[in-house]
Amino acid sequence: MTKPTPTRINLTTPIAVLALAAAAIYFVPIARSQTPTENAAAANSAAAPAEPVKSSTNATKAWQTLNGAIRQLVDTGPAFEAKLRQVTRVDGQEVRAVGRYIQASGLRGLMRMELQAAIGNQTSRFEQTCDGRLTWTREQVGEEVRIRRVDVGRLDEIGFTSGVSARFKVGGLPELLDSIAWDYDLHLVRGVLKETQNVWIIRGTLKQGRLQALLDETEQPAAPPEMPTKVRVALAADGPFRLIPVRMEFSSDPPSGATGPPRLISELDIYEIKAIDPPKEELFRYSTTEDDAHFTNETQIYLDRFQTRMATLPGFSGLRR
């Protein structure tokens, strides 16, 4: 087993290809999360998605809808399981991954996600679990393994004025939606998915300030073709799984000087969603082995990330003492 080291992110690593919504986890690194300067007013007014806003712009409505989806996933919606299918295109390769997703509700903080794909002659696996106290992420390509851990209980040290606590936004679909809400300029439209399902569609363009932070982070002079500067999220508009995401697409801009539509680099389908009985906590526990002793503790990264974000909201009092 290869001991993981916290090296600079490579936009074209095979593990990045496999990871669920690689755009949020790798191409949009959390270590330098940008505060939402372009839509600061919208963000401030929409901090609590359940509260009405007197004068809403479309961007504010999109923000509220994403935050409502997060609340539905972790709190008010039913516990559910679903199948996952992801197609990612990087460096001329097309990687297809399949897996499953399980999400508990009622603010229990329980989530499990698994993806598996073949990259060349190697099998790649992505596993993420949260038992309400620790979130573990394990990525493997062949014999190369990277393991990360976040003590989500420590995120309660941050004082929140409203909305869903940060501890429920680490891992899985909630983290992905939260990253989109903060890193992209958003637009909300009503649509139909495959002519069979009413959905809310949220389109996003990577904020200029966020883009520059990413270029600085990766020491790139311009956005590489793997960087997702466009996002499209489809949320169920009605039915028992209202606001549950059913499809996500990440696209990149054409090369500098070229014209044409954005290039689709990653698409994720969440399908065959079904309600389940409240799952037992044992299902979400990460079984560590002796080989898993070498992991990267990313708790402080997440503390810094949410501290920076929440500091932009009115009434924020910082870390609890």
Rank of each mutant, 00 (worst) to 15 (best):
M1A: 13
M1Q: 07
P4N: 06
T5G: 08
R8G: 08
L11E: 03
T13D: 15
A19T: 12
A19V: 14
A19C: 08
L20P: 00
P29Q: 10
I30D: 13
R32K: 11
S33L: 11
T37K: 14
A40S: 12
S45K: 15
A46T: 15
A47F: 13
A47W: 11
A47V: 14
T57A: 15
T57R: 13
T57Y: 13
N58G: 11
K61R: 14
A62D: 03
W63G: 00
Q64L: 12
T65G: 03
I70H: 03
D75V: 05
T76A: 14
G77F: 06
P78W: 03
F80L: 15
F80E: 10
F80N: 11
E81Q: 15
L84N: 06
R85T: 10
V87M: 06
D91F: 03
G92V: 03
V95D: 04
A97F: 00
V98N: 08
G99T: 00
R100P: 00
R100I: 04
I102M: 07
G106L: 06
M111N: 14
N121T: 14
T123N: 09
T123S: 07
S124C: 10
F126T: 02
D131A: 06
T135V: 04
T135E: 06
T137W: 04
E139F: 00
Q140Y: 02
V141G: 06
E143G: 08
V145C: 07
V145R: 14
V145M: 06
R146P: 02
R149M: 13
V150D: 05
G159K: 09
G159V: 06
T161K: 08
T161L: 05
S165K: 10
S165R: 11
S165H: 08
K169M: 15
G171V: 10
L177A: 14
I180E: 11
A181S: 14
W182L: 06
D183M: 08
D183E: 09
D185P: 07
D185S: 14
L188C: 07
V189E: 15
T196A: 15
Q197I: 12
V199Q: 04
W200D: 09
I202F: 09
T205H: 10
K207G: 13
Q208F: 13
R210D: 01
L211G: 09
A213K: 15
T218C: 08
E219G: 08
P221L: 04
P221K: 03
P224Q: 00
P224C: 00
P225K: 00
E226H: 01
P228R: 02
L235D: 02
D238V: 10
F241I: 11
R242V: 13
L243V: 08
V246T: 11
E249G: 09
F250P: 07
P254C: 04
P261A: 05
L264E: 04
S266G: 01
L268E: 01
L268C: 05
L268Q: 01
I270S: 00
I270T: 00
Y271C: 05
Y271V: 07
Y271G: 01
I273A: 03
I276D: 05
I276W: 03
D277H: 07
L283C: 02
Y286K: 01
I301H: 13
R305Q: 13
R305N: 07
F306N: 03
L313R: 10
G318K: 02
L319H: 01
R320F: 02
